[in-house]
Amino acid sequence: MSALLEVKGLAKRFGGFTALENIDLNVQQSERVGLIGPNGSGKSTLVNCICGTLHNDAGTVTFDGHSVNGLEAHERTHRGLARSFQLPRPFASLSLAENLKIPMFYTVHKRSGTPLHADNVDARCLELLKLVGLERKAHHRPKDLTQVEMRKLELARAMAAEPRLLIADESMAGLSHSEVEEILALLKRLNESGITIILIEHIMSAVMSFSQRLVVLVTGRKIADGKPETVVRDPEVVRAYLGQ
C-alpha cells in the first residue's frame, strides 16, 4: 500500500540559512504520527512546505499518489490536506459559524461540485461546533473566546474542510492538563473516523499517548523515525533534547 503523504528529499532555505535538509517522511492512511523537535528545528517550516504556505527549494511532496509540488496552499486544501495554525488565526470579523463556512464554501463545495443547500451548511456548522463543544457560541465573534476555545475553533475550521490528512500544529501549547486531555480525545475521535493525523507538539506526555509513530527533527534534519518508545530511548534524540 502506498503512503497517503510522501515527502522525499525536501529542503528549504531562507537566504543562507538552511531550515530543512533532505527530509523524507511517509505517512500511511489513518496513521497517527507525532512530530517533535526543539524550538527552531524546522517543524513549522515542514508543515508550511507540506501545506503550500511556503514552497520547498528541493524535493517532492506527494499526496494521495499525486505530486502537489508547485500547487498553492488552497489547491492542497482542496485535495484533502488541512492544518491548524500554531497561533490561532481566526477570521475576526466573522462569527464562529461563519468561520466554518469559509472552508465549506471554498473546499467542500469545490470538491463535490454541487453547492450544498444553505440549511445543510448551517446544520453542518453547528454539528462541527458541537463536536468541539462550541455550539453555544456559534454566533459569537472569535474575540469572545478563551485560549482553549480558540484552539478548538482552529481545529473545527480545519475539520470543516473535510480533510483526509489533518496537521495539528501545537494545538495544545499553554493549555492546562485537563484541556490537553480534551483536545487529545477530540483528535483521537477524528482519527477513529478515518482521518490521518500529524501532531506537532511540545508536551511529551501528550505526544507519547497519542502517536503510533514518532518523528524527530533537529536543526532541519530528521534524526529519528519509529515507535515512540524506541525513539525516546535513541541516544541521538536524548542528546538533542537533554544533552546541551
Partner: peptide, 16 residues
C-alpha cells in the same frame, strides 16, 4: 471577508 481578516488562514481554508 476571509482575505481581509487573515490571508494565510483563508488560503488554508481553500480560498483562492
Amino acid at each position: 471577508a476571509a482575505i481581509r481578516d487573515d490571508e494565510l488562514a483563508a488560503e488554508a481554508s481553500g480560498v483562492p
